[in-house]
Write a protein that binds this DNA or RNA. Structure first.
Lengths: 119, 119
DNA sequence: CTGAATCCGCGCGGATACTG
DNA sequence: CAGTATCCGCGCGGATTCAG
């Protein structure tokens, strides 16, 4: 199997994943949560440049697809913890592989981009 | 190494990759090219729903980052072939892993989304 | 502290027409 | 066939304000 022919199913699956974590902030959130549960404000600090609105929307989206769980502690001041779900944790390895690719080809791609922009 | 602690470098690398292939059409183009060189009109047909403009822009972006190469044949009518670069081909395995994750958890995620939307 | 609601500018992307 | 150019609507996302 897998003689180089890529089935349409793969295409769909890939787009599904990217629709889940392809947003600007989703990946960063997941990486943070991969290190342990985080509070809203902790994420806000960790993800430099994120607006409160976008962080909120990103977390909603991840929660909606059951990639994170939201736990509210009835205290004052209120505390909310976000945690990775088990199957979201399984994304870790595939993501590592992608990251490794980037690390390996970063220079090449960067150089190509500069050359392209010049010419 | 890798005791669960995720380094900032990973975050950057991952976003780099997603910035390269996270667009709506880039992945589909790469998958097509993974099956062999393709002409513009072939891609246009294969990627149902893509506009000529977006396909053009997507190919430009991929070419800019040296993920595809563009070969023009001086004929009439003109013919242009797009081909995957070697390092883009190396994305195949990581992408497969992601695809596998999607296939495995598709039902779970889909159900979660429905439940979330109802509640 | 953790959001939701509103306003608004800007860029993405579709439709259409034109070119080599 | 393989694009580019232009126009334009719509949604993403920032800034700000209000709420539990």
């Amino acid at each position: 199997m897998d003689d180089g022919e890529v089935l349409p199913a793969e295409m769909c699956s890939l787009r599904e994943v990217l629709d889940l974590v392809g947003d600007k902030w989703a990946i960063r959130v997941l990486i943070q949560l991969g290190d342990g549960p985080r509070r809203f404000s902790e994420l806000e600090r960790a993800l430099a440049g994120v607006s409160r609105r976008m962080l909120s929307l990103t977390l909603r989206g991840l929660e909606r697809n059951s990639l994170v769980t939201r736990k509210v502690y009835p205290e004052v001041p209120p505390r909310v913890e976000y945690t990775m779900t088990p199957h979201a944790a399984e994304l870790d390895e595939p993501l590592h592989a992608l990251s490794a690719w980037a690390a390996k080809h970063r220079a090449k791609v960067s150089a190509a981009r500069q050359a392209f922009d010049v010419g």
